[in-house]
């Protein structure tokens, strides 16, 4: 047998590839627990909350959670293609489309907090403390006179769809103002990038509370030019939900794993984890647990706000979008 020398090189390459790929495959199948792919909004991931949740959850359950931190819009697109077993998002209007399309089932509200409008610490437009809609009107008119700039996510994320809703409430059409490039700047990327851009330009922007705190509490304040200007108001409500991928178009999805994780997030332990997260690091919590508010059907101001904003009809998940597991809605 006289192998040519090139053949020997090839044989060596083949042996190496087969051993390498084979051992990886073996390793993955032998050691790995059932995998649960969760596509999530960047705000939950970048703050570090989900790392915490993963450690606690995996200590109890034989499930390997893989988080894809991609933003609500892309998270939903991923689940539609069957590439995620469940989503963790904050964009009610897109969530409804997702349910209506038959891609997702068993929506549950897990937490809430508030978006914030932030801007240059000197606040040249004087919006501090105003109702959010008034503030946006002022920013837009100042912007058109080249006295202020606004930075927008422009990436179809939950924060971005909130921004569009707010502009609409202020009587401005987002598709129209995004072309007014002298004051309206679109980054097309995640919250962190957008905050950096706003800081550089000393511009106004909409942010979720968690990411902003994580950036200003880093080793050195990464956003020295920016300050929180409007931190509450019913229109700034931000509600986080979970939706499982519908197993009927996507039978390969890990539906039972998704249900287990949803139940964990709604459990007393999960809710406490969410509510306590950030207190040691930032001196305040970043997210408020919402499961009890929904379960008890209490009639407080915050409960009414959540229902008005994130319910579809009179339920967080109308019966036609439920699948098995009635205990989720007891």
């Amino acid at each position: 047998m006289n192998l040519s020398s090139w053949g020997k090189v090839l044989l060596l390459a083949a042996v190496l590839s087969i051993t390498s790929i084979g051992s990886t495959h073996l390793y993955l199948t032998m050691t790995s627990r059932p995998k649960l792919v969760v596509a999530t909004t960047t705000s939950l991931f970048d703050t570090g909350l989900l790392d915490e949740v993963e450690i606690q959850f995996e200590a109890k359950h034989n499930i390997d959670i893989c988080f894809l931190s991609v933003g609500s819009g892309i998270a939903i697109a991923r689940a539609q293609r069957g590439d995620a077993d469940m989503i963790l998002v904050h964009s009610p209007s897109t969530e409804l489309e997702f349910l209506e399309g038959g891609y997702g089932v068993n929506r549950k509200i897990i937490a809430y907090n508030f978006f914030e409008i932030i801007g240059p610490a000197s606040d040249p437009v004087e919006i501090s403390g105003l109702p959010p809609i008034e503030a946006l009107k002022k920013i837009a008119s100042a912007g058109r006179n080249s006295q202020a700039e606004w930075v927008s996510r422009g990436d179809n994320s939950g924060t971005h769809s909130k921004e569009k809703t707010l502009w609409a409430a202020a009587g401005l059409n987002w598709t129209q103002i995004r072309d007014e490039t002298n004051w309206f700047i679109e980054t097309g990327s995640g919250m962190g990038n957008t905050l950096n851009t706003a800081n550089q330009l000393e511009a106004y922007t909409l942010t979720d509370k968690g990411t902003f705190l994580a950036y200003t509490n880093a080793i050195s304040d990464l956003l020295p030019n920016l300050a929180e200007l409007i931190i509450q108001g019913p229109q700034l409500l931000n509600v986080y939900t979970t939706i499982s991928t519908n197993p009927s178009p996507h039978p390969q999805a890990n539906f039972e794993g998704a249900t287990t994780f949803t139940e964990y997030l709604l459990s007393e332990e999960g809710q406490q984890l969410i509510g306590e997260f950030g207190k040691d690091k930032y001196g305040q919590n970043l997210f408020n647990p919402a499961a009890n508010i929904i379960r008890t059907g209490e009639d407080t101001f915050i409960a009414q706000m959540i229902k008005g904003y994130a319910f579809f009809g009179d339920s967080e998940c109308p019966p036609q979008y439920r699948f098995g597991h009635p205990e989720l809605y007891d």
Binding site: W6, V9, L10, A13, A14, L16, S17, S20, I21, T24
Partner: peptide
């Protein structure tokens, strides 16, 4: 590991085609 595997793997078809 990942990029090394990729390189070895690609040799399988790159050497015959290249030669």
């Amino acid at each position: 590991y990942i990029s090394g595997t990729a390189t070895v793997l690609s040799l399988l078809w790159c050497i015959p085609i290249g030669v």
